[in-house]
Design a protein around this nucleic acid. Sequence first.
RNA 1: GCUGCUGUAGCUCAGAGGUAGAGCACUCCCUUGGUAAGGGAGAGGUCGAGAGUUCAAUUCUCUCCAGCAGCACCA
Length: 650
Amino acid sequence: MAQISLTFPDGSSRAFDRGVTPAEVAASISKSLEKKAISATVNGAHWDLQWPIEADATIALHTMADDAQALELVRHDLAHIMARAVQEIWPDVKVTIGPVIQNGWYYDFDRAEPFTPEDLGQIETKMREIIARRDPVTTDVWERARAVRYYEANGEPYKVELIEGIPGDEPIRMYWHGHWQDLCRGPHLQHTGQVPADAFKLMTVAGAYWRGDSSRPMLQRIYGVAFKSRQDLKAHLTMLEEAAKRDHRKLGREMALFHFQEEAPGMVFWHPAGWTVYRALEDYMRRRLTAAGYREIRTPQVVDRKLWEASGHWDKYRENMYITEIDEEHANEKRVNALKPMNCPCHVQVFNQGIKSYRDLPLRMAEFGSCHRYEAHGALHGLMRVRGFTQDDAHIFCTEDQIEAECAAFIDLLSGIYRDLGFAKFDIKFSTRPEVRVGSDEVWDKAEAALEKAILSVRNDFELDPGEGAFYGPKLDFKLTDAIGREWQCGTFQADFNLPERLDASYVGADGDRHRPVMLHRAILGSFERFIGILIESYAGKLPLWLAPTQAVVASIVSDADDYVREATTALRAAGLRAEADVRNEKINYKVREHSLAKVPAILAIGQREVEDRTVTLRRLGEKQTRTVALDEAVAVLADEATPPDLRTA
RNA sequence: GCUGCUGUAGCUCAGAGGUAGAGCACUCCCUUGGUAAGGGAGAGGUCGAGAGUUCAAUUCUCUCCAGCAGCACCA
């Protein structure tokens, strides 16, 4: 029999018969490895222990100690075990697909009745039974026609469709445990008993469209989480509980930042405390943009449909636009207006006033633009997804040659701002030309190259999303993560060769001829609403001093101290701090508790001793320790800390 | 928009076919207390909206509205 050479991670090589499986390789090394092995990596690919190796290769055998492979396999096997459990309980349920996702897996089922929470418990119990059976997992490759016939005969139309979608050169692979069978590309564990029976949990049921297509049937998706050990599972569940505590909707209520109500779904009612945060952030952004060479403008909220038709938005987004009409009785002309869903067409109007020279470029035009979009009910989510929002929007009118420098300057600005706001980490997605697009390939080449070069000057770990660019140009998206790991798009940078054309923007070049400028759409926060939601979650409500709505509370311990409490409060305010006096007839314990729950960063307690010594006793949020210092010193320390990051000298 | 769940006092929640309850918060009184809840009293609700069934609906049914989880969408 022909031999092949397998190279192990330590660099050593051994000869095996062609077609040897990793299971056999493991067995040749030791009895215990044979038992403990879960999978292999062969030439870089995650490999099932049963798959034969046909040529010389590098090989690494995995056990449960290898986190990445173990979690992948455990979760993947659990998806199958869950599908099997469901079909054992309800044989008429149709199975579809069940991939591994972050922290776990899901599986989509077609079943007439909804799954209930009680059903989940029953399924979990059945899954543990299946795991206890320790059925060996076996696999082989089927003829395509046979697989189709099999699933047709078994009344599994979704599987038939999946097989038809597998490219012709790929094998149709089947997996079994026991008598239960599923189409799967693998790899899997050796037997179901390798799955830790106490380290998974079924979480929720929710609807999900077959193949993610809203025109197709809605299936029922069951989500599960799984880990290698019960402790890891417990830690994950604890993390979820902690995350729920920092949900911005909950904290927004507790800290009296904002509210929503039925009469204006998806529109924020900002309360004094929340609006203070908002303005602190807006003031900061305004200073940063000014320093970066932007000029601020303001454009109308209500604009005639003609402009939206010209920009192309009417065709594409009519459904999501709020339309206003004047009461017919009083209207002397019938105009249909729309609440602006975005600022760019208005910005082009400002650009178009007068004649622009190439010397004016790049021209950076910023607006804290209030926009309205009719988002689907199901899309609304606290401050993160609203119908009325304000973008930190700006458009840079420039030449093609200026794109790269503007992009680099933008990423630099964005990184600095994210850092100031506490986000050292953010993800970048780079979306390139889609199939349907405007503009020549040369221009796209240039724009994509410029964007890519600009990102690479900052970092090299970005996600490439080919074909996902806007129809008018490539784009970069900048994403932050909320308390439970959901990603939200915040910043964006988009090159646009289309809108200047549609809205006839031009400038006079050095050659004396008219040229089209390129328009760069860009935002850093994205929307103030969403960004503040993320800030709240990220800080668990404990905002840094410069952003905190109330920065300090001066609390009396005895009423004889009231006058000095007011004096101290005045001193803090004179130093620019947002300070309140609390001279209520309550004990200091009560006041400390209440202000701590309200996330006030600094509490200055004043009793008889402080009055006599002209000091305050300072307690910082989250600390048990107090510090008695001179009033002047406390004011200076807090005022310094409350300086916004861009105004700090040190 | 789709699937499922939910909607009772400012907040968190209990409750039942015979028009409602707790804790906290709120108001007043007592208390002047040294760093996460001092004591007492009081006030507060068209039980999300509309329709239907019933002698009787906040409770059962339907429709609508809003919220939650996920999917789809996100210029």
